[in-house]
Design a protein around this nucleic acid. Structure first.
Lengths: 306, 306
DNA sequence: GCCAGTGCTGCATAAAATGCATCTAAGCGA
DNA sequence: TCGCTTAGATGCATTTTATGCAGCACTGGC
């Protein structure tokens, strides 16, 4: 869309923090881009960017403007998707950010079944921690975020929340393997492999640790759940996951997972959210709706039973 | 704003229903306007307008587009108002539509006191019936509507509602002048001067009339409350008004107003609303907030006492 | 069947955006 | 302190885009 172009230009400059870099990305000369910005500033009568020696930075007015611009760009996408809908084809793009727990089973299954119904809809999936997820929504880089234990933020609105009881993962020959439920005392006496501090699961563990005064016996810390999982196959220690990150049929797994007593570590919240007061495209809204339905179907009532 | 221009062009064409008329209004040639529309349609790959012999009409895709366009135009206004806010001046424009009851006291008082605080904010006030109010909001011609007994419509969202008990107005020498409360039987036995059917007050009267089977003894029907009011000064008959259309100090009035028993004619709802999912400009939002506060202060709890 | 009114098109012109070469200013390192 | 590099700004020629004029084809009403 031609008429949206000025907004995209400014958005790119804001993201790159440099007119020249943005110009390169946009495949035009820095001169042209520079002038567009100057003329836009002229029309508004306000400086959108502060000029620094090493580039540009959004001014307060620019912050307002960029929010507006991104909103309009997103709105345009939504409009195109709606118009495409009229012609019978359901097109569009859905951009998601999520925590690692969604990666192994939940999202792949859901997206593939969604795409089976709507083949013209494309997806981008970013994996990140809770803070980055919030930033991605705020930047309009993502339409939807699905995160465990989200940071409280008035800018975001939750479409659904479900409780997720912490699960301990171990090999079948682990000393605790015969237990039905793990207590905090079991955990502190075991070696554990845990995710890094930006992660929601780690956050729950830290909270329990603070509350009881018991330190965890951490032998491995990694940002990758996949790595932790693989490590537990080799050394007799515990790792942790939430139900949504486990296979629906637990018998098929090469690892044993046992729920952790809720009195010791309370359930965390898995939350799907979007930027408040933002209108999602048809495709995104529909997909978000599917996520909500499946989340609630699987984890709404009986989340305390593994 | 240059980059919004294409949207304004299309908006104007949609409003006038003719490219040539719109072109005239926009002070360009029809050729230029025509081409802009063609190119926009080309980019979208959809016809925005159906071409008729006598002009153009929005196609389904055009309906979607025009909604988007008006939203963006309004958003731009909001942005400019926010940016102006940064520089310390609270500028902006507030466009209101309302029923006649707001005309004599409520809105003039409130707007003048608002403007005393924010002299750079300008107002436009349209007087219309409930249906027109809904249309004005939907067309983005008005930001806020204040109407009595609004038509139910999922497109609109109410910022506040207060109950308004019907008041009968009469001269001080009217036979019913000594009553504290009027009953339906009093009304049907009197001559009455009533507003036209599009009005909310009339709607309440009609409902009561239907329910009881008693016809009103209508001697004058007028769309102007002002006229009705003046008429009651000359002939001994009843007219009707809601509290918000009466002076705060009733002793200052040249007419007597007596509440109508609620069991006979239930209170109607005075409602301030906006288009759902629309972001108001700073000025509009602030003013709407003032309206809500004053409405609730005056009429929230004790609306049954005149 | 005319006529007024509509949207659309070819061509010349006006306006705007772009690119190139260049300028000025500010941080960085020796 | 003195280059050196990098940033955004600017003058000018060029390309691209938008506009206006004259005229066309079509439609509905009188």
């Amino acid at each position: 869309m031609r008429y949206i172009l000025p907004l995209k230009y400014i958005d790119t400059v804001a993201r790159t923090g440099s007119i020249r870099k943005a110009a390169e990305q946009l495949a035009i000369t820095s001169t042209a881009l520079n002038r567009r910005i100057l003329s836009m500033e002229g029309e508004l009568g306000v400086q959108l960017f502060e000029r620094l020696a090493r580039g540009v930075r959004l001014s307060p007015a620019g912050e307002l403007f960029i929010h507006h611009a991104r909103n309009q760009i997103a709105d345009m996408e939504r409009l195109k998707s709606q118009i495409a809908d009229l012609s019978g084809v359901r097109r569009g793009h859905v951009s998601i950010v999520c925590g690692q727990a969604l990666v192994p089973y939940f999202l792949p299954e859901l997206i593939s079944s969604y795409r089976a119904e709507h083949p013209a809809v494309t997806f981008s999936v970013g994996i990140c921690d809770r803070e980055q997820a919030a930033a991605a929504l705020a930047n309009y880089e993502a339409d939807i975020a699905v995160v465990f234990e989200p940071l409280i933020n008035p800018e975001f609105t939750a479409l659904a929340r479900v409780q997720q009881q912490l699960q301990a993962m171990m090999s079948y020959d682990h000393p605790l393997a015969n237990k039905k439920v793990l207590r905090w005392s079991d955990i502190v006496e075991s070696r554990v492999a845990v995710p890094t501090r930006t992660n929601g699961v780690r956050h729950l563990l830290e909270t329990a640790s603070m509350r009881t005064g018991n330190d965890l016996n951490i032998v491995i810390e990694s940002e990758s759940f996949d790595f932790l999982r693989n490590y537990v196959l080799h050394e007799q220690c515990l790792s942790f996951q939430i139900p949504i990150g486990l296979p629906a049929d637990s018998s098929k797994s090469d690892l044993l997972s046992i729920p952790v007593e809720q009195r010791d570590i309370p359930s965390g919240e898995l939350c799907i959210g979007q930027l408040r007061s933002r209108n999602l495209s048809v495709a995104s809204a529909l997909f978000a709706n599917d996520v909500v339905k499946l989340m609630e179907l699987r984890y709404s009532e009986n989340s305390e039973i593994s």
